[in-house]
Amino acid sequence: MLCVERLVKQYPTGDTALRGVALEVPAGQVLALIGPSGAGKSTLIRCVNRLVEPTAGRVVLEGEDVTALGPAALRRARRRMGMIFQEFALVERLSVMENVLSGRLGYVGFWRSWFRRFPPADVEEAFRLLDRVELTECCDKRADALSGGQRQRVGIARALLQNPRILLVDEPTASLDPKTSRQIMRLICELCRERKLAALINMHDVGLARLFVERIVGLRQGTIVYDGSPDGLTPEVLTTIYGEEDWAERRRGPGGEEEEPEVDEQRLAGLT
């Protein structure tokens, strides 16, 4: 379904974020990308839909080479890839409905979107998704009036309204509390199963990843160092991914909470 081949990304600053990453995601598989800050997780998923332009290598989606597409064809390819963001990335001054409907922008023309005249089928589907994420009541509220968990559900509805084949999910729970984090992860995984979507999920939280996904890929300094089932994540493997740390001790810790990794400055720099 999605095939990433020898992907390399070097930023103009000289930082190399990805050093020849190869990855294959079959249809319907939910996969978590884990790794320390600056390992290149965010760069990798942004290279898939070319929000970040890869330096070398190919991204092939359902047999189509995304890296070779012109602007118009790239926009059509992006419709098939829904994206969910860490800080929700909603347009705060637009209403919930407008945010959800913006998922259809790749399908409708400029003037239709300008006058907010989306096809009735799109509006109907948007309502269905809002029902599914339990936000129908809020449809005319402004996005900045919602709580974090609600906002992320709007973000999920927006991504699904694209009718995508794959979800690219960037740290979906990093701005949420532990309970909401689990709810959001559960929702994403349920929706993927219902709609038979593949998903590529960046995660900081190894414990949460173990709980929900069937395959885990560990990234360190732009290279894949682990690819397998969650059960294979032994302390030795975690050490290769994250470096020296007493993993057994941490798992025994009260509540099993992971400590938050430091702010990923390199990644932020890469975005701007």
Binding site: N49, L51, R75, R76, A77, R78, R79, M81, G82, M83, F85, E87, F88, A89, L90, V91, E92, R93, L94, E98, S102, G103, R104, L105, G106, Y107, F110, S113, W114, G155, R158, Q162, L168, L271, T272
Partner: peptide
């Protein structure tokens, strides 16, 4: 804020749509 602009771009929106949906609401006030 760059994040919404990125999100709108990721939906496959065209340039003009990115401006009207991602940028305009932020700078309107």
């Amino acid at each position: 804020d760059r994040a919404p602009v990125e999100a709108i771009t990721a939906t496959g929106a065209g340039r003009a749509q990115v401006v009207t949906f991602g940028i305009a609401p932020q700078v309107l006030p």
